[in-house]
Design a protein around this nucleic acid. Structure first.
Lengths: 233, 233
DNA sequence: CGAACAATTGATCCTCATCAAACCTTGTGG
DNA sequence: CCACAAGGTTTGATGAGGATCAATTGTTCG
């Protein structure tokens, strides 16, 4: 499999890159395949590479000392991850990256990006925009976890995941398909698989979603938005 | 009151700035005084200025639609805040900034920083380091909120706040003084004033802290670390 | 001294985690 | 192609951890 450098322009940070720059990045990359459930890197490892997901879906997660996990971010095609290491040369990954499906990704040395940042202002801005986005998302999710009830949090989480990795499904409807297990949703919303299962079953009874093994199909996004805002019932 | 430009070097982003740059920033700044409890800006306002706190302490908070608040960050002297607006010209503040004590701060137009970033690589790196720090802190706090019990979370919060805004107190001891109400601690740890009060009273009985009105004195930081790691009892 | 506000403490209740057991789906090997 | 294993999902029963409420006490400041 060969990567066309111009494909890299689908990565937000490279939107305004020159053709030469794109080629340079591709030439300095390694293509890595990762099986479903396997890992790109672990929390605590030296952040030697950053990645650009070419195909598949992945998640960033963090574990506490007892081994409980939370999902910090879900990664779709043409998104960068593991790039915080480009800022400090001695950085370690603050999270673990795991494939949700069979994945292929470009791995590029962090120092390469670090050096490129010195001479290419557009990269700085792109990376900062990405970072401000993460900061805002994490702040929102933190507030939600601190102040909202589970059902709302699950609704907010499912809607967010739909926007990030959802596949439009079934005709011109606004139905969105998510390849996520109850476990994944629980880790992303800060609850347990039992509660996620109960809530999804309830939503299914009300015709909002359709569920299956490692699958959630959103049939009525607007209904979920109402739940997330506490406007239902 | 007059600001000596070289004082700005205490701001992490300006650590490696030239004297000329520092003077330029000071010349383009306005000195704002904000009374205790008053606000620098509100969540949702256009992010026209960013701030450098010169004296006092402040906090960044976010409210949900019902008005419940969470504390996102606590700000000490010579820290920047409200700077996310420098990345996107049309940004709005994602959080509200409120003074915990009487404060003075330099207000500088976001576009000024935005323009300066174009020509001064050291600013880009400084700002990115700051941002990666926030991202990592928010990720950690999110995980803690999702997986840890209240007492541990309060211990982690108090220790973090001590590192960020604590004043060393009482001789050469490792005692640290925090000018925070139960409300502040509750908002920072995602719980209620009642629970914070109960936990602090318990710690006081055990000789770990001393409490007062809008005041927490940490007498035994190591004991709190043990609690935060679940090693007590 | 009194008003305003912060903190404490007890009683109660509710949401959600936990546990256990059964059920369903998918893939594999005989 | 069926049977079975493995692992995901559902559902009920139970209980605990904290939130909530209410009343009191303590502190600060005009």
């Amino acid at each position: 499999m060969k990567i066309d450098p111009s494909d890299l322009r689908r990565v937000s940070v490279f939107k305004e890159a020159t053709d030469d720059d794109l080629s340079l990045f591709v030439e300095n990359s390694i293509l890595r395949m990762v099986e479903e459930g396997e890992f790109f890197f672990f929390q605590g490892d030296p952040a030697k590479y950053f990645y650009i997901l070419v195909s598949g879906k992945a998640k960033l997660l963090q574990s506490n000392p007892a081994g409980q996990q939370v999902n910090l971010r879900t990664i779709n095609e043409w998104q960068m991850f593991g790039a915080l290491g480009a800022v400090r040369p001695d950085a370690i990954y603050p999270a673990t990256a795991q494939a949700l499906e069979p994945c292929t990704a470009l791995a590029i040395e962090s120092v390469f990006l670090h050096d490129a940042l010195q001479t290419r202002p557009y990269l700085n801005f792109g990376l900062m925009q990405l970072m401000t986005g993460y900061i805002q998302e994490m702040q929102e999710r933190y507030r939600e976890l601190a102040t909202e009830r589970v059902e709302r949090r699950i609704a907010l989480t499912v809607l967010r995941l739909a926007a990030q990795i959802g596949k439009r499904s079934g005709g011109e409807e606004t139905m969105v398909e998510l390849p996520l297990s109850r476990q994944d949703v629980a880790e992303a919303s800060g609850t347990t698989i039992y509660t996620v299962s109960r809530v999804l079953s309830d939503w299914e009874r009300r015709g909002l979603v359709e569920t299956g093994r490692e699958r959630v199909l959103i049939k009525n996004p607007h209904g979920l938005v109402q739940i997330s805002e506490g406007l239902d019932q």
